[in-house]
Write a protein that binds this DNA or RNA. Sequence first.
DNA 1: CATAGATCCTGTATGC
DNA 2: TGCATACAGGATCTAT
Length: 282
Amino acid sequence: MPELPEVEVVRRGLDRWVTGRTVSGVDVLHSRAVRRHEGNLEDDLIGEDVRCVSRRGKYLWMPLGRTGTAFVAHLGMSGQLLMQPAAAPDEPHLRARLEFADDGAQLRFVDQRTFGWLMVAPLVPDETGGHLPEIVRHIARDPLDPEFDDEAFVARLRARDTEIKRALLDQSLVSGIGNIYADESLWRAGLHGRRRTGSLDGARVRELLDHVRAVMTEALAQGGTSFDSLYVNVNGESGYFDRSLDAYGQEGEPCSRCGTTIARERFMNRSSAFCPRCQPIS
DNA sequence: CATAGATCCTGTATGC
DNA sequence: TGCATACAGGATCTAT
């Protein structure tokens, strides 16, 4: 379940391994791997230079040298972008492969659950003089983005009439947060995920945002959360933040703050883990 | 327009 | 042993 810290770890790895290289070959091995793309991925990638690797929330993209377009990737639930020597055997869920003109390591897209996807999209101007793929325009900035506007976020969230966890997971309000970091942030803030947004004052929302930033920053420093074998960096290595989780996946364990047994509720077709004592509904 | 819920997918774990 | 079911959840689509 790659969220912001995991995607950022992948971005850093890719930036080091593919920036400046020229695409010379494209293999698409699964029909769901390329989505929303007009035309042929191969035609739009071969001969292009990768200028850098950028990210907003959980979206990754690589601006291409000539055409004002970018190669965009979303990892979905189980997507991996791996650098592999050409001689390495194909992974069981290999969905696509990019080769480069220098014949060095290949970029492989491996995705067991096929919720991830690749495409080439036109770049459009963003609000502050940069560019982003058209397909990413509706995604809000993430809390680690220097241009993230804290007060605008607080105001927009408080104007919503919904549950706080649903708001945290809404990528058009704040991006990069998924189920793991939503549950961890809410636990740290002492808020139940079903609390109504309108019942929180500005100070409380700012405090929650501080927890979101802190938990993501800590996770990033540990290489991300590898709760199962599905999240790895570009070298196939796991992160260690799973050892620091206080709520997510801790159902039945004692709360590390008060000792109460961590509970779980179904919510938005997913699980929410929380401490019934530290995170009262009202 | 805003919000809520269903849906896509497959490997692993669990129950009978 | 074998079969059926539940579960993991990001983003999008549809319904209200």
